[in-house]
Deep mutational scan, measured.
Amino acid sequence: MSGIALSRLAQERKAWRKDHPFGFVAVPTKNPDGTMNLMNWECAIPGKKGTPWEGGLFKLRMLFKDDYPSSPPKCKFEPPLFHPNVYPSGTVCLSILEEDKDWRPAITIKQILLGIQELLNEPNIQDPAQAEAYTIYCQNRVEYEKRVRAQAKKFAPS
């Protein structure tokens, strides 16, 4: 494992614990031996107030490669969400998460999670990743928002 990646992720964890947006979660997972795995984080993004996503808490896994922060983490909703920019596998399609697009090593975990929260309610229809959600979003916004509200209710924190 890269010392650069681990040191950056340790800084990220410290900064997150000191200050993070209300309702968001970002925690490194534990290895079988109980030690912390900084390369694999369990996160959760709350649906934004005043949107059909409100009330939901959407679980996301963030996986970092050894060359982080040169390369972005892979962000994957578990379980996958109904959304035009979420692949059926759950992987998020967002330009700041793509090395050859808008990724920059200075982007923080907090910025990534806030960017994904923004994307939930403002899909990028130029870059669809899920045919069904994309089609319904474009053709029947009322039905799309109904499905999103049902999903938010399903993923409401207990």
Rank of each mutant, 00 (worst) to 15 (best):
A133G: 07
Y137S: 03
L57A: 06
F82V: 03
K154Q: 13
I125Q: 06
S158D: 04
N40F: 07
T29S: 14
P46W: 02
L81P: 04
P80L: 08
P69F: 04
E98T: 08
K49T: 08
G34N: 07
P84M: 14
I136N: 07
Y137A: 01
I96G: 06
D127G: 08
H83F: 05
A150L: 13
S2K: 05
V86T: 00
P72H: 05
T108Q: 15
L97R: 03
V27S: 08
L60R: 04
P84L: 15
S95D: 01
N40H: 14
L9D: 15
L38P: 07
D67G: 14
S2P: 09
Q117Y: 09
M1R: 01
L113H: 03
A129L: 00
F58R: 04
G50L: 10
V92N: 00
N124I: 03
D66F: 09
K153P: 06
N37T: 12
A150S: 12
T135D: 07
I45Y: 06
R147M: 12
C93K: 02
I96V: 14
K74Y: 15
V86F: 12
K59E: 11
C75N: 06
W16S: 05
N140E: 12
S7I: 07
G3W: 12
F64V: 12
R13N: 01
D33K: 02
P79H: 15
Y68A: 04
G50P: 01
S89H: 15
L38E: 07
G55I: 08
K146T: 13
Q130H: 11
A150E: 10
G55L: 10
F24V: 05
V92G: 01
E132R: 08
P32V: 11
Q126A: 11
F22H: 08
V86P: 02
I109E: 02
E42C: 09
K14H: 05
L113I: 12
P123T: 00
G34H: 14
A106Q: 05
F64K: 03
N124D: 01
M36D: 06
F77L: 06
T29G: 12
Q117M: 08
L113N: 05
T51A: 02
Q111S: 15
L113D: 03
Y87S: 01
D33R: 01
P157V: 04
R8L: 15
E98Y: 15
I125S: 09
A129Q: 04
C43Y: 05
Q11Y: 13
P32D: 15
P28A: 10
F22K: 01
K74Q: 14
F24D: 12
Y87F: 14
A44Q: 02
P88G: 12
D33L: 04
I116K: 00
M62E: 02
F58G: 04
E78G: 13
A10F: 11
K48S: 03
A152D: 00
E118Q: 09
A26K: 05
S71N: 10
T35K: 01
G55N: 09
R149S: 10
I96L: 11
L119C: 05
T135K: 06
P73E: 02
L60N: 03
L57N: 09
P105L: 02
K74R: 14
D102T: 06
I116P: 02
N31G: 06
D102I: 06
S71Q: 12
N40Y: 09
L81R: 03
I45G: 03
K101P: 08
P52F: 10
E122C: 13
L94P: 00
N140G: 03
N140L: 02
A150N: 12
Y134V: 08
L97S: 09
L81S: 03
P32K: 15
Q111G: 15
V92F: 04
R149E: 09
R104E: 05
N121K: 10
P52S: 13
L63G: 13
Q11A: 15
Y68C: 05
